[in-house]
Amino acid sequence: MNQTSGSFMLEVKSLNKKFGEVHAVKNLNFQIRKGEIFGFLGPNGAGKTTTMRMVTCLIPPSSGSIIIDGNETGANSLATRKRIGYLPEMNPLYNDMTVREYLEFVGEIRGLKGAKLQSRIQEMFTLCALSKMAYRSIGKLSKGYRQRVGLAQAMMHNPDLLILDEPMSGLDPNQIVEIRNLIKSLGKEKTVIYCSHILSEVSATCDRILIINDGQIVASGTSDELTAKSVRGSRFVAKIKADRHEIETKLSSLPDVSKVLISSVATPWVTAEVVTGDQQDIGESIFKCVVDNNWSLAELKHESASLEEVFTQLTRK
């Protein structure tokens, strides 16, 4: 990377965290550029939440440093905390307060007062669609609304760095789309760290993804770069009307094909899965093979390895 350190919102340098004998985070190094939506992926217990707790100054690292926009967190804890908005995992809220009271409280702590505070609360109500629930007590809200209150809490002071730990848990598909769009629009100006183990969400939302396992980085890059890292090559699925053995032998003899699987034999159509050794596009040669043999073709599609597969490959022990 050839950027100067000024363009990074967050820099993590050889970060370690030990809890007694347990080495939860091992020598983590990464940078997040300003205005990036950064996906932080890993199976449960990989050290995602521990890392975020260190970034938000809740717990100090055992060693290493965390630099937020040029300021080290250890020495400038209060100053860096002002720039972070944090939605923790499980989204803890004060159940006996109303939504309005809670946002007023959070706003006051963030230094907002009077008319400014009221107008910001109105903005958050509109942004998170909470107006109807303003005077409900938080304990009586559904999970989706609670999640929005948590998001409103995190965004109240318009933070430069927004950290969302599992923001989609408990949301229905419509709400997920809404919140995803919200995060994407925020990501135009703000830096967002999105921790999750829901891979489709992360690949749909994030510019760059970091996968950690067992406290260590196992992969990083854009969603496309990560899928390209898959050990498995490209996969083509063809639905052909012909004898299954004939299909198997003919397709196997094509160049670059490493394996042919006949997955469904619903007569007269046979579904063949053709796997290549590398990331090669052999769609054309499959089609030619079908034409040469005078078969009928109903379907031919290219399936690249999904992020799920990459994730499983990288994080399985």
Partner: peptide, 14 residues
């Protein structure tokens, strides 16, 4: 118990 303390301690409060 409610884990609100964890959130509170990430706010800019000493």
């Amino acid at each position: 118990k409610a884990k609100t303390l964890e959130l509170m301690l990430t706010w800019p409060l000493s």
